[in-house]
């Protein structure tokens, strides 16, 4: 059904009539559901929302939403969304992209959309593989990964998308995971609350070409030891028995055991979403799960003027300086003469 402004809708009201065509068991289903839930909870009407995607499995997303949408070309969704949002700040604009779409072919547009702080929500579905083209390595595949296009293992290091987004100037940067639906929903909601560009990396399992890529972080037994769920103003504690924490030593993060129980060391890492330095420090935890816990949650959040706001101010400055200029006067320009 179509909402009328003011009515509260259900998540299913954001569901289109198209049957999703992702593989059964794909992590994308969970994200679709959470996005629909968040839109309903936040009181949006379908005609106020636009989903722009590129190419890849995740980019089929707009077809499954009963909102406005555009399934575009490979890598260009952030640029297309920029043009739309600049002209239509009234709309809620979301970019749905994948690791190949956003970080390989579309890397340039991604960093510039982040740098400009366009008020859009960029959801990067990271499955560390090319799914739609059937199993080539992606810019987030781990070094030495064996895939169809790397039968002898890759020879290149993966991007850390969170660190990349922070360096590019994103004003909201978070990481979540498909299986953690509550966490995911909370992050999506905050991403949408944020005024300015929101970058959310979502670890998403591709059960056909890269099954279990994030099992270390989703397996209920392993998870307490391999993940840290960041909370603003709180110390970074983890472990099955909540007996480990991060400390800062010589400018680096280190895992230490909390000894004696309950007594946090003085140099414990306390997360601060407003600190870019801290965000980059904790985002740099990117090693193998058995050695380094992987942080999730909101790394960084800061309110800065959005691109649309800056452009509005730019226009206002120009108007103030120039006064009211009619089209006719514009055509006349600086110097005219009359021929009789």
């Amino acid at each position: 059904m179509t909402g009328t402004t003011g009515t509260i809708l259900k998540p299913s009201d954001f569901q289109s009539s198209q049957e999703p065509r992702w593989c059964p068991g794909c992590g994308d289903y969970a994200i679709l559901k959470q996005v629909q839930t968040v839109l309903a909870e936040k009181g949006y009407q379908p005609h106020e929302v636009v989903f722009i995607s590129g190419i890849g499995c995740s980019s089929r997303f707009p077809y499954y939403m009963n909102t406005y949408g555009m399934h575009t070309i490979h890598g260009r969704a952030p640029a297309i969304a920029t043009g739309l949002k600049v002209m239509r700040p009234d709309l809620s604009v979301w970019v749905i992209t994948g690791d190949g779409d956003a970080l390989a072919i579309g890397g340039n547009h991604l960093i510039h959309a982040l740098r400009r702080n366009v008020d859009i929500n960029i959801l990067l579905f990271n499955n560390e593989i090319y799914g739609l083209t059937k199993g080539q390595y992606s810019p987030t595949s781990e070094l030495y990964k064996v895939t169809k296009s790397s039968p002898w293992g890759t020879a290149e290091n993966p991007f850390n998308p969170v660190l990349l987004a922070l360096s590019a100037g994103a004003t909201f940067v978070a990481r979540t995971i498909d299986r953690e639906v509550k966490h995911q929903r909370e992050i999506l909601k905050q991403a949408d609350d944020h005024k300015g560009v929101s970058f959310v990396e979502i670890y998403q399992n591709c059960n056909v070409f890269n099954d279990g890529a994030f099992a270390d972080f989703t397996d209920k037994k392993k998870q307490p030891e391999t993940t840290i769920f960041l909370k603003h103003g709180e110390p970074a504690i983890f472990g099955v028995n909540r007996d480990k924490c991060l400390v800062v030593e010589n400018g680096r993060l280190k895992v230490v055991k909390i000894e004696p129980e309950g007594s946090l060391p003085g140099n414990v890492y306390v997360h601060d979403e407003t600190s870019l330095e801290k965000a980059m420090l904790v985002a740099s935890l990117f090693g193998p799960a058995e050695h380094v816990p992987r942080p999730f949650g909101v790394f960084y959040r800061v309110r800065k003027p959005t691109y649309e706001e800056q452009l509005r101010q730019q226009r206002d400055r120009a108007k103030e300086k120039m006064g009211e200029v009619s089209l006719q006067d514009l055509l006349y320009g600086d110097e005219t003469w009359q021929v009789k």
């Binding site: 636009v50 722009i52 555009m70 575009t72 070309i73 260009r76 640029a79 297309i80 969304a81 920029t82 043009g83 739309l84 949002k85 600049v86 002209m87 239509r88 709309l91 340039n108 547009h109 510039h112 452009l311 730019q314 226009r315 120009a318 108007k319 300086k321 120039m322 200029v325 089209l327 514009l330």
Partner: peptide, 28 residues
């Protein structure tokens, strides 16, 4: 800019045409 035109320098020509398409989708 004082004539209400939004004028933007894109990161490359691909972004230029792409964002023009986005703007057109939005009614501009």
């Amino acid at each position: 800019r004082y004539m209400d035109v939004v004028a933007i320098q894109a990161e490359d020509e691909i972004a230029a045409i792409s964002s023009a398409i986005g703007a057109a989708y939005g009614g501009a």
